[in-house]
Structure formats: structure tokens, C-alpha cells
Design a protein around this nucleic acid. Structure first.
Length: 561
RNA sequence: UGGGGUGUAGCCAAGCGGUAAGGCAGCGGCCUUUGGAGCCGCCACUCCCAGGUUCGAAUCCUGGCACCCCAGCCA
């Protein structure tokens, strides 16, 4: 096996099927979302898995909405899902399908099952069905309507469809085995009556198929070969197979894999909806959300998410991926591709007292040290600058390399400066740092190579652009957001500091013209993305995508232990 | 207590009877005009446990144990 050949248990199954010619050499996968919410990174894992498999085996990949429940589904979700799947590179070409387009066919199949004596109309209420289903250890009891004659079932089912039977009073059930150890086989419900408009079908239907009944039919109609889903559907596979076998239709193979979990991250659609509805976040696209729209607004690239999905692999083991893996993916991408810039988030003024009063120099700065073709740009330098408050300490702690009274640092792309004096206000806050520069140390000069411990970034005070910077941190303070004290829920694990807004940042001129969605590395700070909604020309707003790895922070951290 | 799954390092994950890949994290060092990046090195004498088969077992057999899923007219 070559090193770059992918291998996982699903591909092994496909290889075997190819060998035995189970599907005449075809590979056809699908991603079947229910349009009841926005896609999150867990869906990205599934999209990439299904798409990559189809691509690698020269097969096909479908996008199919599993829109069988009108009570929860909306067109807004359909639209966002299509956009997100495309953004993630899931190319379904012209194969965009809707389960609801198969409703007539499903209805006919149901009639066929009734005629076979394998399905019946049941008058039991939801409560009665629950109480007759039995338990995990005890068998259920048969419905008194189980042996209705075919003709009666046909008539009643038609009436259900016509809409003259109230919600919840009748269902169509498969006649399987009330004593099965697999509860899914205890006469499962195929249709329920729901008088609710459907986002695509309008009022055409008032009976809606359940997942188990619908899904295999959908896969079969589309000629799917490998129907890949998550582990919780493993118990449903016998039912998936039963329906298809009884119908005698083309039979795809269902395969289950472990869904994605990430530390400090909530990936439950229901809970993400709750975060949005209760305004714990600004919306589905809040940059702290693990949704695809959230990651996109935050500044994550599609490429980084693809890399992440490749790296985590696929198996049947319940797993929780370290969020550091995700952060690694975006740094890996942006280190190679992001334009560098200088931005001072928490500014303090530096005055270079021996630098001429009105002099301005235009200094060349490298756009990307990892990519020579990115070229250079010009940054203005002058007598008054802003530097990061963190880059100066009046009393430097051990191993602190940056500026402090009497020490020297290099200003990136400029000169070496030495701190001569600290100016404070009446409260003792540092308001100015007076330095002297050494003209011989200008970057590029042969005499510039004097070693100093640190290089710091800066922005010319005269030319600085004011910016807002939003520092995002993890949304939850616990690795497992669901790990809570008695009586509390996951909301108690929300990180109160997940968003910090800085409104007085000073950034280099080039950043004033940044377009929405542009990504930068603010040197020594992190990767940032111009906010697509709130950033304006001349008044830019930047989202922090991820920090740079910070060795100094680690030293500080270790010092505290 | 029924059924279905899963156990390889802190987190993922290869491995398919021939003597434990790789990545993330971590830890050293080198290099550096980003405390970034890069480079080098370290990081499982052992694969949930106990027996057995075998010249040889993470891989096969037997018996345990732990964890996850299932009692929606959700998907």
C-alpha cells in the first residue's frame, strides 16, 4: 500500500464490494441533511467523507434533503445548507434531491406493503403505543388493530391521506414482531398524520413518512450504493433492510461511523438552536458557533476544515477530538497563505526622542515569509509610534525579552531602540515611553545585524488606522459542555469571556482598506479576518480566528504553577 | 436485566499471526529581524483484563470488565 492511499473501514467495505461486484462496480454516496438547522462541523465530517469516497472511486455524490417532518423544517435552512455544502467542496453537480419529491412513490410502496399484509392502520394513541411497546427487557403487546383486513387498511390509509382524520389518532404501522429484542422492529410507525404546510409540498400532504420508512426508499430510488450514517442508526439497519427486502427494491448498504465530537464544543443541533433562540450568541453565524457559517465568518478557510476532516480519520469508536487539532488546521493553512500585517491591539505611545520631528520613512515589509511571491509592501515610520502594552514592562519578569527601561529591542522592519524614560500620569499609568534609536541599525543596512533579544511590532502614530478587534475564545469552559452539576444545564458552562471587544486598536494603513473576509496574520499576535457584516472601509472590524502559538504565554503559565 | 456497538499513548489513528506507522498535544535542543514558521530529538518492552492455541498473538479461541446507543407519531 502506498503511503498516500487512504484506508479506513468504510473503504475496506467498498473495496470488497468492488471485488465481488456487489454494485456492478459503482460507488454512489449521498449527504442527507434534514433542513431543520444550520450545518455544523460534524456535518462537515460527513460531507467530506461521502464526497471524498465518491471522488476517489470515480463515483457520484448526491445532496438530498431528508425533508419528511414539516414541523421543524424551513426553506432558510435549505438555502444555507446548499451554500455550506458547496463551500466545503461537496460537489453534487446536478444531483440535488428532496425526499419530499418521493412522497407519491413512498405512498404507493406503503399501499403495496398493506396489500402484502405487512402493514396496518393502527388507532392507538401515542401514549397507548408507548405503553404497548414493552421495555428493553420485556416484549411489547400486539395492537388490537394489528389484524385488520387488507381492504379496511387500504380504505383507512386513503382517508388518512385525504386529510379527514385528525392528527395523532391513526398511524400506519409495519407488521413485524412485537417481541423483537430490537425495539425498532416492534411494529414501527411508517406514517403519521400531520396537518402542517410543508416548505416544498405546501398542503398537498397530511400524512408524512417516518425516517426509517423513508430513508431506505430514498437511497434505493437514487441508486445509492453505500448509505453512510452515524452510529446511532446501527440499531435501525435491520429495519432499513426489512423495508427494502419486503418491497423487493434495489438494496443499498448502510454503513455507520462515529459522529464527531470536539472538546469545549457543542455539536447538538437542538442546543445550537437554543443558543441562537435565547440570544446567547448573535446568530447561527456568530463567530463562536461551530456552525459552518460561524467558522466562515470567524475566518476559517474551507481548506483548513477539509484538512481537519482528513486528519481526524473515521472509525466506529466514540471519540472526542482535541480542539487543538482544529486550531492546528487553520494555523497550518494561514501560516502558508495569510498576508502579514502589523496591528497594535492595546496601544501605548512610544516617542523616539532623537528621531527628527517631521520625518517619515517608508519601509519595506515582507508580506509573507513563507511565500516569496507575495512580495513586499510599504509601512510608514515616524517619531511617534504605538506599541503593544504587553511589549513593555517597567519591571521585567525573568526571561522577559521585550522592552523595559534600559533594554533594547528591534522594531520590526525598522530600527533598534532603547528605552530611556517612562512618562506616567497622575494615577501612575504609563502614557508615553521615551526611546532613542540607533540609525545604524535600520533594517537592510549592513550595520543592522546587531543581535537583540526581541523584535516587536509597531504602528506609526501619524498614519495608524483605528480599528475594532474582536477576540474570540472558546464558547464553553468545560471540555464536555454537558458535564454539569445537578439541576444545571449546559448553559452554565458558557464561557463569560468568549468575546472581548477592543475598540481602540491601531493598525497599519494597508489594513484600513481590507475587504470583507480578508485574512491576515497580525504579526506576533494571531490570525484575523475582516468581519463580513460589520467592517467598513476606513473603520475596519477584525475577528480573531486563532492566536499564534505563544511560547511566552507558556513560560508565564509555567511560572504560575 | 434484552438487543446492537466499541476498547491500541493525554487526544485521534494505522495495524488484518512474524515482534506497535503517522498526526495533534507535550518535553528537550538548533535556528530565527514574528517568543511565529522551520529543523532535529524524546514521548506504548506493550495493545481493557484473565486464561488458552501457536515456534511466535494487538491480531485467533474462551471467559470477564468498562464505555456508548435503543423504549419519538424526531432524524
Amino acid at each position: 500500500m502506498t503511503t498516500n492511499e487512504k484506508s479506513d473501514f468504510i473503504r475496506e467495505i467498498i473495496d470488497e464490494d468492488l471485488k465481488t461486484n456487489k454494485f456492478e462496480g459503482r460507488v454512489h454516496t449521498r449527504f442527507p441533511p434534514e433542513p431543520n438547522g444550520y450545518l455544523h462541523i460534524g456535518h462537515a465530517k460527513s460531507i467530506r467523507l461521502n464526497y471524498e469516497i465518491a471522488k476517489d472511486y470515480q463515483g457520484k455524490f448526491n445532496l438530498r434533503f431528508d425533508d419528511t417532518n414539516p414541523e421543524k423544517e424551513e426553506q432558510e435552512y435549505v438555502d444555507s445548507i446548499i451554500e455550506d455544502v458547496k463551500w466545503l467542496g461537496g460537489d453534487f453537480e446536478d444531483r440535488l434531491f428532496y425526499a419530499s419529491d418521493y412522497f407519491e412513490q413512498m405512498y404507493e410502496f406503503a399501499v403495496a406493503l398493506i396489500k402484502k399484509g405487512k402493514a396496518y392502520v393502527c388507532d392507538l394513541s401515542a401514549d397507548e403505543i408507548r405503553s404497548t411497546r414493552g421495555t428493553l427487557t420485556e416484549p411489547g403487546t400486539e395492537s388490537p388493530y394489528r389484524n385488520r383486513i387488507v381492504e379496511e387498511n387500504l380504505i383507512l390509509f386513503e382517508q388518512m391521506r385525504k386529510g379527514n382524520i385528525p392528527d395523532g389518532t391513526k398511524t400506519l404501522r409495519a407488521k413485524i414482531d412485537m417481541a423483537s429484542p430490537n425495539i425498532n422492529l416492534r411494529d414501527p410507525i411508517m406514517y403519521r398524520i400531520v396537518h402542517e404546510g410543508h416548505h416544498r409540498q405546501g398542503d398537498k400532504w397530511c400524512v408524512y413518512p417516518t425516517y426509517d420508512w423513508a430513508h431506505g426508499i430514498e437511497d434505493s430510488i437514487e441508486g445509492i450504493t453505500h448509505s453512510i450514517c452515524t452510529l446511532e442508526f446501527e440499531n435501525h439497519r435491520p429495519l432499513y433492510d426489512w423495508y427494502i427486502n419486503e418491497l423487493g427494491i434495489y438494496h443499498p448498504q448502510q454503513i455507520e461511523f462515529a459522529r464527531l465530537n470536539i472538546t469545549y464544543t457543542m455539536l447538538s443541533k437542538r442546543r445550537l438552536l437554543q443558543l441562537v433562540q435565547e440570544h446567547h450568541v448573535s446568530g447561527w453565524d456568530d463567530p463562536r458557533m461551530p456552525t459552518i457559517v460561524g467558522f466562515r465568518r470567524r475566518g476559517y478557510t474551507a481548506e483548513s476544515i477539509k484538512m481537519f476532516c482528513d486528519k481526524i480519520g473515521v472509525s466506529k469508536k466514540d471519540s472526542i477530538i482535541d480542539v487543538a487539532m482544529l486550531e492546528w488546521s487553520i494555523r497550518e493553512d494561514l501560516n502558508k497563505n495569510a498576508q502579514r500585517a502589523m496591528a497594535v491591539l492595546n496601544p501605548v505611545k512610544v516617542i523616539i526622542t532623537n528621531y527628527p520631528e517631521n520625518k517619515v520613512e517608508e519601509l519595506p515589509a515582507v508580506n509573507n515569509p513563507e511565500d516569496e511571491s507575495a512580495g513586499t509592501r510599504i509601512v510608514p515610520f515616524g517619531r511617534e509610534l504605538f506599541i503593544e502594552q504587553d511589549d513593555f514592562r517597567e519591571v521585567p519578569p525573568p526571561k522577559y525579552y521585550r522592552l523595559s527601561p534600559g533594554t533594547e529591542v528591534r522594531l520590526r522592519y525598522a530600527y533598534i531602540i532603547k528605552c530611556a524614560k517612562v512618562i506616567k500620569d497622575a494615577q501612575g499609568n504609563i502614557i508615553e515611553i521615551h526611546c532613542i534609536y540607533d540609525p545604524e541599525t535600520k533594517s537592510g543596512l549592513p550595520t543592522a545585524n546587531r543581535k537583540v533579544k526581541a523584535t516587536i511590532h509597531w504602528v506609526s502614530a501619524h498614519d495608524a488606522v483605528n480599528a475594532e478587534v474582536r477576540l474570540y475564545d472558546r464558547l464553553f469552559i468545560k471540555e464536555d459542555p454537558d458535564e454539569v452539576e445537578e439541576g444545571k444545564d449546559f448553559l452554565s458552562n458558557l464561557n463569560p469571556n468568549s468575546l472581548q471587544v477592543l475598540t481602540h486598536c491601531k493598525v497599519e494603513p494597508m489594513l484600513g482598506a481590507a475587504a470583507p473576509g480578508d485574512r491576515f496574520q497580525f504579526e506576533r499576535v494571531g490570525y484575523f479576518c475582516t468581519d463580513a457584516k460589520d467592517s467598513k472601509p476606513g473603520a475596519p472590524v477584525f475577528n480573531r480566528i486563532v492566536t499564534l502559538k505563544d511560547t511566552w504565554a507558556k513560560i508565564v503559565q509555567q511560572g504560575k504553577k
